[in-house]
Design a protein around this nucleic acid. Sequence first.
DNA 1: CTAATAGATCAATGAATCTTGATGCATAAA
DNA 2: TTTATGCATCAAGATTCATTGATCTATTAG
Lengths: 106, 106
Amino acid sequence: MKGSTVRNPSRAAELFHALADPTRLEILDELKEGECCVCELTDRLQAGQSRLSFHLKVLKDAGMIVDRREGRWMYYSVNADALAELDDLVDSLKQAKRARRATGCC
Amino acid sequence: MKGSTVRNPSRAAELFHALADPTRLEILDELKEGECCVCELTDRLQAGQSRLSFHLKVLKDAGMIVDRREGRWMYYSVNADALAELDDLVDSLKQAKRARRATGCC
DNA sequence: CTAATAGATCAATGAATCTTGATGCATAAA
DNA sequence: TTTATGCATCAAGATTCATTGATCTATTAG
């Protein structure tokens, strides 16, 4: 198991940050239907090209998506590993590893 | 089922934004072990009082945690509903509802 | 009542983000 | 080679965020 990311607040924050924007969530919502190029996203999402490019970069830097060049088009798609990582992260927010706090306060 | 939040990018972004900060993730990491007051968090997290208060407010406004007053102490704990909501959100990033895109690009 | 304590809130500063329009760089068509 | 297209990147401005120290409020102890 990887496990390292779950214990790393900065990495976790980076991943959650990538998801903390409506435009980026809409991008992911499109990409989950399959690979897609920027020009198509521009159509679907009513967003300017440089704006999309900016958000795609955030998602890519965080590892949420991967890209592939084909001729002059860039195809983006969701990175399945990142989704697994997300699952781990959300799980790690739940598990109580130690026994419930025994002492009261202060 | 609720379902509404999953389809709402702003709400989803708010929830993810609350998780997009190392300090807040550390707070949640403490709270998942059980209810905790601010003074105890201050000790454990090496963080100033107003800083903690700020982040606790962000988490509370997003619905990630709930508070309870007891005397002059405020006890915070994780909101289980929000964890379920998170699960839904992460799931919604995976499911491909339509068939894979048939057309090529542009 | 007065003093002390827990914690929220405010004000100010600096850092990070997002948006827009312009420019640059490939690749492909003519 | 010239021209057009797809997209990344840059620069500037606006907005949001995070941190710190100060102040305010509620509660409890003396």
